[in-house]
Structures are given as structure tokens and as C-alpha cells.
């Protein structure tokens, strides 16, 4: 391979990993909701859209940096998620006659309402937050003068990625080291047994829906400096989260992280080598390949190693 080709490949992989880190955060939120509630939250991307608009408004009015607005958007989204769970999803969950499929349809409806509200308030205009570091980047040639290839690292993409990593690490710590985190994992594995341990299962469900929403709300803030915003922007991210959740193995947090990275890299490769517009197609190709060849997702591969089956 000649240097130019290597340059393109490396640059593509870097972009893919950065995108994948952000995708992982979206997928994680959906995954923990899936784990505890046993439903796919198809309003997930729309919740992210709400997070983006919160960050946008704070930027437009107060010139608050989108990264700082996480501190506002995440708690607000937590509340929104908890309210949605308690007053909309939970009552439906309790009716035996309603199939789980219909609870999923309910989340589709919630997503549509959120998107329509956004259209009413903000119109369908495309918006961006013109942060002053939007086009800032680091170049390989700045640190290595004689480098035969040139690579660049976008400042906002890198910062967003780092935030995603830190939030993911925080979530990891919470789920693996705290009583509450362990109770959430226990509820996801066996809710009746968790109840026998004294876990307030109802409360855990509400909390988990809130936490998943807060995570994707934070992801919205991280996307604002690098993406454009419009009321229907959520749909594609719902789809992304859905693919990652399947890819990861329906409820496995580690699987979701791997799934997010794989999807990010795959989309980036598709965009470079097939064509910009083909990235969504790449997403579906991954999706179908996984369903056919690893129906249990990443988690089933890990489990096979651990349990020897």
C-alpha cells in the first residue's frame, strides 16, 4: 500500500473509533433500559434530540459550552425518562392483556410526540452551535515534522469522545461497584429474585429509565458541537441505538460498548470506501450479519467463553 492509501485508512479508522465511542454511549442507555424493562425504547433517539435542544438553547441564550450543558441536560433528561417510565410505560406494563410489542409501540408514540413538540417550538430549521473550536484540529505533522503521512484529530470530536469515555467509565463503576448498580443488574437478570433480596424493583425500573435517558441526553450534548440539529434528528439515533443493542446482545453493557465501536468503525469505512451516503446501509449490513451469524450478539460470544457453552 502506498502512503496515501494508508493515510486514508488510518484517518478512517480514527474517525470511526471517535464516532463509535459516542455511539456506545447511545447504545448503553438503550441497553440498560432493555436489560431492566425488557423493552426496546424506540423513543431513545428523540430523548437525545431533546438533550441536543437543551444544549442548543443554553448555547444560544447564555453562550454556555455544550460540554458544560451536560450538567443541565442529563438531570433534566433523567427526570423526563423517570416520568415517562412511571406515568406512561409502567401503567401499560401492568396490563397483562397488552403484549410487550405494544409497550414498544408506546415508546414509538412518545418519540413522535417529542419530535412534533420540537417542530412546534423550534420549526424544522437545521441548526448548529457555532462553537469557536468547531474546526480546530491537531495534526500529526505538528508533533512529528518528518512524518510521511498526515493525520488529523478534530478537537470537538476528540473532546466529545473523551467525555463519552469518562461517562462510560463512571457508569461502569456505578454498575459494578455500588449496591444500587448491583441491584439494577440483579433486577435485569431476575426481577423476582431481586425482589426477594429486598430490591425495590419498581423504583429500579423508574431509576433505570431515567439513567438511560440521562446517558443519551449527555450524548446529545456531545453531538451538538459536531453535528447539526433538527426536530427529526432522533430517528437515526434510535436506529443506531437499536442496532447496537442487538449487536451487544440485548442487555449486555460490555456488549453495547463493543457494538458501538464496531458500528462506528464500520460506518466510517463504508463512508470512505463506498460513499458518504452509504453509511446507513452499512449499519443495516452489520445488523443483518449479526442477526444471521451471532444472533445473541457480543454478549453470547463472551458468555460462551465464560460458561463453556
Amino acid at each position: 500500500m502506498n502512503p496515501a492509501k494508508i493515510e486514508v485508512l488510518l484517518q478512517t479508522l480514527i474517525s470511526g473509533l471517535l464516532l463509535g465511542g459516542l455511539y456506545a454511549l447511545i447504545g448503553l442507555g438503550m441497553t440498560i433500559i432493555m436489560g431492566v424493562m425488557k423493552i426496546i425504547n424506540l423513543a431513545h433517539g428523540e430523548l437525545m434530540m431533546v438533550g441536543m435542544y437543551i444544549a442548543y438553547v443554553l448555547f444560544a441564550w447564555l453562550h454556555l459550552d455544550p460540554y458544560l450543558s451536560i450538567l443541565v441536560a442529563a438531570p433534566l433528561l433523567f427526570l423526563l425518562g423517570a416520568i415517562i417510565q412511571k406515568y406512561l410505560v409502567n401503567p401499560v406494563l401492568k396490563v397483562d392483556a397488552i403484549l410487550p410489542e405494544n409497550q414498544v409501540i408506546l415508546t414509538v408514540g412518545i418519540g413522535m410526540v417529542l419530535a412534533n413538540l420540537a417542530t412546534m417550538i423550534f420549526k424544522s430549521d437545521y441548526r448548529t452551535a457555532p462553537v469557536d473550536y468547531a474546526t480546530k484540529a491537531w495534526y500529526l505533522s505538528d508533533i512529528w515534522k518528518g512524518s510521511p503521512i498526515e493525520l488529523s484529530l478534530s478537537y470537538p470530536w476528540s473532546v466529545s469522545f473523551l467525555f463519552a469515555v469518562v461517562i462510560t467509565a463512571g457508569l461502569w463503576f456505578f454498575l459494578s461497584r455500588t449496591d444500587m448498580g448491583k441491584s439494577i443488574r440483579a433486577t435485569a437478570q431476575d426481577k423476582d429474585a431481586a425482589l426477594l433480596m429486598g430490591v425495590n424493583v419498581e423504583r429500579m425500573r423508574m431509576f433505570t429509565f431515567g439513567l438511560g435517558s440521562a446517558l443519551v441526553g449527555a450524548a446529545g450534548c456531545l453531538f451538538l458541537p459536531i453535528y447539526y440539529l433538527y426536530p427529526d434528528v432522533g430517528g437515526q439515533f434510535t436506529l443506531t441505538g437499536f442496532v447496537i443493542t442487538i449487536l451487544g446482545g440485548l442487555g449486555s453493557t460490555f456488549g453495547a460498548i463493543i457494538g458501538g465501536l464496531v458500528l462506528g468503525v464500520f460506518e466510517s469505512l463504508t463512508a470512505t470506501y463506498v460513499g458518504m451516503g452509504w453509511a446507513p446501509v452499512g449499519r443495516f449490513v452489520v445488523f443483518v450479519l449479526v442477526l444471521v451469524f451471532v444472533p445473541g450478539g457480543v454478549a453470547s460470544l463472551l458468555r460462551r467463553r465464560r460458561f463453556g457453552k
Partner: peptide
């Protein structure tokens, strides 16, 4: 209540299972 069929949290460690018994 120690339930029928044990109902352990199979993907969690023995120690985590024990900790969940004392929340």
C-alpha cells in the same frame, strides 16, 4: 426466602450474589 431452583444471579460473582443478600 431461598427460592425454588436457587434463582442465583448467574452472571454475577459469588461474592456479588452474597452482597445482594444484605442490601
Amino acid at each position: 426466602h431461598v427460592p425454588e431452583a436457587r434463582r442465583l444471579f448467574v452472571e454475577m460473582s459469588v461474592e456479588e450474589n452474597l452482597e445482594l443478600g444484605a442490601l
